[in-house]
Amino acid sequence: MTYVVIDNCIACKYTDCVEVCPVDCFYEGENMLVIHPDECIDCGVCEPECPADAIRPDTEPDMDEWVSFNRKYSEMWPVITVRKDPLPEAEARDGEKGKRDKYFSEAPGEGS
Rank of each mutant, 00 (worst) to 15 (best):
M1A: 13
V4E: 07
V4M: 12
V4H: 02
V5P: 08
I6Y: 03
I6H: 02
D7T: 07
D7C: 03
N8D: 14
I10S: 03
I10G: 04
I10M: 13
A11Q: 15
K13Q: 14
K13T: 12
K13N: 11
Y14E: 06
Y14D: 12
T15K: 04
T15I: 04
T15F: 08
T15D: 04
D16R: 12
D16Q: 13
V18D: 02
V18Q: 02
V20G: 04
V20C: 11
C21T: 05
P22E: 07
P22V: 09
V23Q: 05
V23F: 02
D24Q: 14
Y27A: 09
Y27I: 03
E28H: 01
E28Y: 03
G29W: 03
G29M: 03
G29S: 05
E30G: 00
E30F: 12
M32F: 15
L33F: 05
L33K: 01
L33I: 04
I35L: 14
D38W: 08
E39A: 04
E39V: 01
C40T: 05
D42E: 15
C43M: 08
G44V: 11
G44C: 03
G44D: 08
E47M: 14
P48L: 12
P48Y: 10
E49K: 13
C50S: 10
C50N: 09
A52S: 09
R56W: 13
R56D: 05
P57F: 07
D58M: 05
T59I: 12
T59P: 03
T59R: 10
E60C: 00
E60N: 06
D62K: 11
D62A: 11
M63R: 11
D64M: 09
W66D: 04
W66K: 02
W66G: 01
S68M: 12
S68A: 15
R71F: 10
R71D: 08
K72W: 01
K72N: 06
Y73N: 03
E75Q: 12
V79E: 08
I80P: 06
I80V: 14
T81D: 06
V82W: 00
V82I: 13
R83C: 09
D85R: 09
P86K: 09
P86F: 05
P86D: 07
L87R: 03
P88I: 06
E89M: 14
E89H: 01
E89F: 00
A90G: 07
A90E: 07
A90S: 10
E91W: 01
A92I: 10
A92G: 00
R93N: 13
R93L: 11
G95A: 06
E96Q: 10
E96F: 00
E96L: 13
K97W: 12
K97A: 13
R100H: 08
R100D: 00
R100M: 14
K102E: 14
K102L: 15
Y103G: 05
Y103A: 07
F104D: 08
S105W: 06
S105I: 10
S105R: 14
E106S: 15
E106N: 12
A107P: 00
A107T: 14
A107F: 11
P108T: 07
P108A: 10
P108K: 04
G109P: 05
G111H: 08
G111R: 09
S112A: 14
S112T: 13
